[in-house]
Amino acid sequence: MSIEKVQLVAFVYKISTPVTNIDENNMVKDFYSYKFFEKFLHTIIKRTDSEFTDGKKFIDLISIKQSSDADILEGVFHTSRYGTKNDIIDIKSKAVVANLHPTQGVRNSIHFVINRKTGVFIIQSDPFKVATRNTIVKYFDRKQILANTLVDKYNKNNHPNHIYKEFIFAIETMVDEGFYQQLRKLATTKELKVTSSVEKPDSNAAISTLTKDDYDDKDMLGEVTDVSYSWESNGRGSSLKHIERFVKNVIDLEKVSNIKASGYNHAGKSDSASFSVKPVKHFITTTKNSNGELDESKIIEDLIKHCKKYS
């Protein structure tokens, strides 16, 4: 049986389970309770309706378990795309050998690991582009109601620190910190510009805010791929505030592609900070046999190796 080396990409995110000290009305956004979050995951898996579907994408949390390393949790999502009828052909003979109906799809297993100490979440890239940050967040959002009892127990045992049932988790895209280092060189920031990659309905919605009420679709701009938004502070001696916090909130791997801040450095000269939003990623190496099967043990081994870097 022939063996072929394969290189895959894994993306890095960070999970948090924000808590609020209700006595001081102070939220700790970066807090991560692995015990709480893992109980939440187990609650999802136990359900017969654990999957999420939206007419095109399918994602389902299949399993989680402690790794051979006690600090690492391993898990698997099943993903698929469906919604249209497709023929399955034999590549050599070109003959149709079966059909995929609209309610059927090809299953893919996507592995991930979570660092229990830090909440760092590293997931194997999904060729179906279903197991993305956006879809995973949407998936867990839909399942939050299952954690109500867990939240009540946590709040009872950890007073005054409370988790809110409407906000039990957050998943943040980890990006290169270079922008923030550049940003701190600016003494005064006069403009912040965010460029977002968009699909046609999104761009039309943005354009319609600048057009007459009786506009026609044919009057819309065509072939729009990116939309830019600018925030300015033009008053004498004024400066935009809380930029770093704003940028961390606005970054979304699926949408924001570039951010630029312009202003004056500490020497009083015009300066800027900019970067393309590129998620932190790692390469993982595995093998594929003549049946097209990937060696999952090697995938997990590399995921764990990278995840340990964030302890």
Results as ranks from 00 to 15, higher is better:
Lys138Thr: 15
Lys92Gly: 01
Val137Pro: 02
Asn249Thr: 15
Leu192Phe: 03
Lys241Asp: 11
Asp302Gly: 10
Thr17Leu: 08
Tyr229Ile: 15
Val6Cys: 10
Phe275Asn: 12
Ile62His: 06
Ile59His: 03
Cys307Leu: 08
Gly119Asn: 13
Gln181Met: 09
Thr132His: 02
Leu183Asp: 07
Val198Pro: 00
Thr79Asp: 10
Lys269Tyr: 08
Leu294His: 01
Lys309Ala: 14
Lys281His: 10
Thr149Trp: 02
Gln7Cys: 13
His282Glu: 13
Val28Arg: 08
Pro279Val: 01
Gly105Leu: 05
Thr287Asn: 07
Lys190Cys: 00
Lys248Asn: 13
Ser67Glu: 01
Ile122Tyr: 07
His242Ser: 12
Asp71Lys: 13
Leu41Ala: 06
Asp216Asn: 12
Val120Cys: 03
Lys200Gln: 13
Arg116Trp: 05
Ile145Pro: 07
Gly237Asn: 03
Thr48Arg: 14
Lys29Ile: 02
Lys129Pro: 03
Asn99Cys: 01
Pro160Met: 01
Ser257Glu: 10
Thr225Met: 11
Ile122Ala: 02
Arg81Cys: 06
Asn157Thr: 12
Tyr82Gln: 04
Ala206Leu: 12
Asp90Thr: 06
Val247Glu: 02
Asn265Leu: 06
Leu146Val: 09
Glu51Arg: 03
Val250Glu: 09
Asn291Tyr: 13
Val28Glu: 15
Val247Pro: 06
Glu293Asn: 14
Lys200Thr: 15
Met220Tyr: 07
Phe121Met: 02
Asp126Ile: 08
Phe112His: 06
Ala95Tyr: 02
Ala147Gly: 08
Ser311Val: 11
Ser125Trp: 05
Thr149Asn: 14
His282Pro: 00
Lys65Arg: 12
Ile59Phe: 06
Ser197Met: 01
Ser233Arg: 13
Ile110Asp: 06
Glu24Asn: 07
Thr43Ser: 13
Asn158Met: 06
Ile300Ala: 03
Ser239Gln: 03
Ser63Gly: 07
Asp54Trp: 02
Gly222Ala: 12
Tyr310Asn: 05
Thr17Gly: 03
Ser230Ile: 12
Asp71Gly: 04
Ala95Trp: 02
Pro160Ser: 00
Val137Lys: 14
Ser93His: 01
Thr48Asp: 15
Gly55Lys: 10
Pro279Asn: 10
Tyr34Trp: 11
Thr173Asn: 04
Lys92Leu: 14
Asp302Asn: 12
Glu38Lys: 11
Thr285Asn: 11
Ser63His: 08
Lys218Asp: 11
Thr286Asp: 02
Val120Leu: 00
Met174Lys: 12
Ser239Trp: 00
Ala267Phe: 15
Phe169Gln: 09
Ser93Thr: 15
Ser125Met: 09
Ser272Ala: 07
Lys14Met: 11
Gly268Glu: 08
Glu293Cys: 04
Ser230Arg: 12
Ser208Asn: 11
Asp90Val: 06
Asn21Ile: 07
Gln181Val: 12
Tyr34Val: 10
